[in-house]
Amino acid sequence: MGVSVALFSTRPPPQGLISHDWSDEAMTRTTYLGDLSPLNSLAALPRLPLLALWRDLRQGGSGFARDVTVSLPAARRLAQAARARGITHVHAHSCGRAALICALANRIWGLDYSLTLHGPLSDYGPGQGFKWRHAAFGTVITRKLTRELRAALGDDTPKRLFLQPMGVDTEVLTRSTPYTPAAPDGPLRLFACGRLNVVKGHQDLLQAVRLLRDRGLDAKLEIAGEDDAGGTGFHAELQTELERLNLQDHARLLGAIDADAVRAKLEQAHLFVLASWHEPLGVAYMEAMAMGVPTIGTDAGGVPELITSGKDGLLVPPKRPDLLADAIAALAADPDRCRSFATTGRSRIVEGFSSARGARTLLDGLALKDDLHL
């Protein structure tokens, strides 16, 4: 779209999460702001309008003063880098620490910023009023979260707030071969993709697979994704559960795999299943549906804004492995419905959840000038 993009982050990702063929290039392009030097915090103090800033910060809540102190050096580095590169606006792709860094850079050094809400506001730490009230605009990924944000922020809600469900590249995520349902006498290939965290419900999906196998259905499951620690956290607990259920020969944890590998797994899958306890929206669902894979999810969070159960996928209650197993078995036994979901699911993503829509929302929100750089 003709926009020059500069990348900033607080720190490099853990080694176990570096999986894409473009990771090294992206890390080289990224300026990392992580800098906990007390001297840099002190260097910012003479520029602070202390009384005004105190009034701005005092309602931040427990732990907010610590977060501000830790974030000041990164805010200073961001402002310096933006000034050096002629950047006048930064978009924080989170309302966590990134948004605090941007808000501080705005209040002290005048850097314009915007931010995005991806999930429940309570997940992103204290000081949300401070983070949002000075933003040029905000974006939110679902209507449900937009309502919750307005109720929580009140007068601190930015005047300009846009629905931006992110989205996926539907030109890349497209099949090379037509979708084929599982054969009645063959294995049922299930695929899930998502961060290894208890709220993603992978343990419920493993239990559903155990139930299906006990019923005589040859269900095979692969789960792509890694925990936030790069493999030393919830991954081990999930592997233990897999072994407890005696699924060693029927289920695998793939860890972090690159985008091409995910695409290949989706093309091989008969069904995509994600059993999240709570999902603000679900990019993994979008990827699967864009690839024409019949998709089963949970009626949790913002997922119903993405999947209309019975029309372009199926939704079941979260934390119900028994109902999940029932839905998988019923859909696998209905090849015509599988083919229908493959078609209607992709249409749903192409029409409403293309990544180009998310990019255009940012550009429209900024009302970009010809020479403005992000």
Rank of each mutant, 00 (worst) to 15 (best):
3 V>P: 07
256 A>P: 03
205 L>G: 01
73 P>R: 02
200 K>T: 06
240 T>I: 11
361 T>I: 14
114 S>V: 10
52 A>H: 12
38 P>V: 06
32 Y>T: 00
35 D>Y: 00
196 L>G: 03
71 S>W: 02
54 W>N: 11
34 G>L: 14
137 F>G: 05
359 A>F: 09
369 K>G: 15
225 G>Y: 08
75 A>N: 10
98 A>W: 00
255 G>V: 09
223 I>M: 06
25 E>D: 15
334 D>W: 05
333 A>L: 10
55 R>L: 13
197 N>V: 15
120 P>A: 13
166 M>R: 00
22 W>S: 14
213 R>G: 03
91 H>Q: 10
281 L>F: 08
345 G>N: 04
26 A>D: 07
340 S>I: 01
33 L>A: 00
211 L>Y: 10
358 G>M: 08
301 G>Q: 06
152 A>M: 10
32 Y>G: 00
351 E>D: 15
355 S>M: 13
353 F>A: 07
351 E>M: 11
86 G>F: 09
242 L>D: 03
117 L>C: 09
99 A>H: 08
11 R>S: 13
351 E>T: 13
24 D>Q: 12
47 R>V: 04
198 V>G: 02
117 L>G: 09
302 G>L: 08
233 G>F: 03
3 V>Q: 12
89 H>P: 05
292 G>T: 08
372 L>M: 14
213 R>F: 10
268 Q>N: 10
213 R>W: 09
236 A>S: 15
338 C>N: 05
182 A>G: 03
259 A>F: 10
306 L>M: 05
282 G>C: 06
63 G>D: 09
294 P>R: 05
59 Q>N: 15
47 R>S: 14
199 V>T: 12
251 A>M: 04
14 P>D: 07
150 R>F: 04
122 S>C: 10
6 A>I: 11
210 R>T: 09
283 V>T: 13
318 P>L: 10
151 A>H: 12
244 R>G: 12
338 C>R: 02
360 R>C: 03
242 L>T: 02
373 H>V: 15
35 D>V: 02
245 L>G: 08
12 P>H: 06
203 Q>F: 01
290 A>F: 07
75 A>I: 11
212 L>V: 02
117 L>V: 12
82 A>K: 07
61 G>V: 09
155 D>N: 12
175 R>A: 13
327 A>L: 03
225 G>T: 02
286 M>Y: 03
143 R>V: 10
92 A>Q: 03
68 V>I: 13
312 D>Y: 01
361 T>K: 01
239 Q>V: 02
189 R>S: 10
52 A>G: 12
316 V>L: 01
185 D>C: 11
272 F>H: 09
315 L>T: 04
182 A>V: 05
370 D>W: 02
266 L>I: 11
290 A>N: 09
78 L>N: 06
357 R>W: 11
178 P>Q: 07
323 L>Q: 14
238 L>D: 05
106 N>Q: 14
139 T>Q: 12
109 W>H: 12
372 L>V: 11
157 T>K: 04
223 I>A: 10
164 Q>T: 08
303 V>M: 09
288 A>S: 14
343 T>C: 00
